[in-house]
Design a protein around this nucleic acid. Structure first.
Lengths: 141, 141
DNA sequence: AAATGATGTAATGTCAAGCATTACATCATT
DNA sequence: AATGATGTAATGCTTGACATTACATCATTT
């Protein structure tokens, strides 16, 4: 019923790396201390972000760094990178009765509207870049 | 991770009542046959729709009827009536570290954007009335 | 007023998803 | 080689939704 916290965790992770890169060793453990979750959760987030080409992670020596311009990463990109939603956000009841006029057509009648709503949410996430967030963050320090 | 099927079930329920009112006795069992769920699920949906002033349910004798103009009921109204989402649609990680510059401000930086996205989804649902759906349904018969 | 048929609602079991955590093999650097 | 970190599997826990059973209550009909 809620969109997985992997999403906010991943955003948080990127901001920590950006903020502390160069000053601190941005290991999964260090990041985990800011997010306040188990380091494994951060490693998984980093794997997703790495697969999406946003960060680089040094195995062995440790530490993550950002390898893509934050102006080119939107909240939607992160949302996608960590698979915040698999498929549709609305859960449709499984087997409407095809022998009923309503049951037979309920999908045809509803699906596009549900998809529109989901798209509206996602489009909103596309409007915000990670760079925007870092600027907002700076302003608050 | 998905919005409860109570929502699509409730929409389906309203359409069944509208479509069969007068022709069939629209009991929870009858509706359940079209939606293909347990009648109790329909009764619960009807309770919510009744509380929202959309339907009337005859206890004892049985059968539900619509008591509000379908042009005045949007998908959002139904979504709300059945409590599709409790509070926020995004799940934020619980305890960001307040001793960290990022952890301390992550909520301030993210919350409004997440709220905007949720609002975008909900606004989209406000654009569609149940009447629109019945018209679309008619066209397909 | 009894019988019927439906609703209102509590209680329970099941199942899946997400999260947290442990453990350990692997890797790069010192 | 030793160290310190990542990659990843495995496990247990908890929560939430859904399905179902059961039954008291109610309105109508006979």
């Amino acid at each position: 019923m809620k969109i997985t916290s992997r999403f906010t965790v991943a955003v948080h992770t990127l901001l920590v790396i950006y903020h502390f890169e160069g000053k601190e060793k941005t290991t999964s453990e260090f990041i985990a201390a800011s997010v306040n979750v188990n380091p494994v959760v951060i490693r998984r987030a980093l794997l997703s972000l790495k697969a999406a080409g946003m960060v680089e992670v040094k195995a062995g020596s440790g530490g993550a760094s950002i390898v893509k311009d934050l102006k080119d990463i939107t909240l939607f990109d992160v949302y996608r990178a960590v698979d915040s939603v698999d498929g549709d956000i609305f859960h449709f009841h499984e087997n409407p009765n095809p022998a009923c006029a309503v049951g037979k057509n309920i999908h045809a009648v509803l699906d596009t509207h549900l998809a529109d709503a989901q798209r509206a949410l996602e489009n909103e996430l596309k409007k915000v870049t990670l760079y925007d967030l870092t600027q907002d963050l700076e302003r608050r320090l």
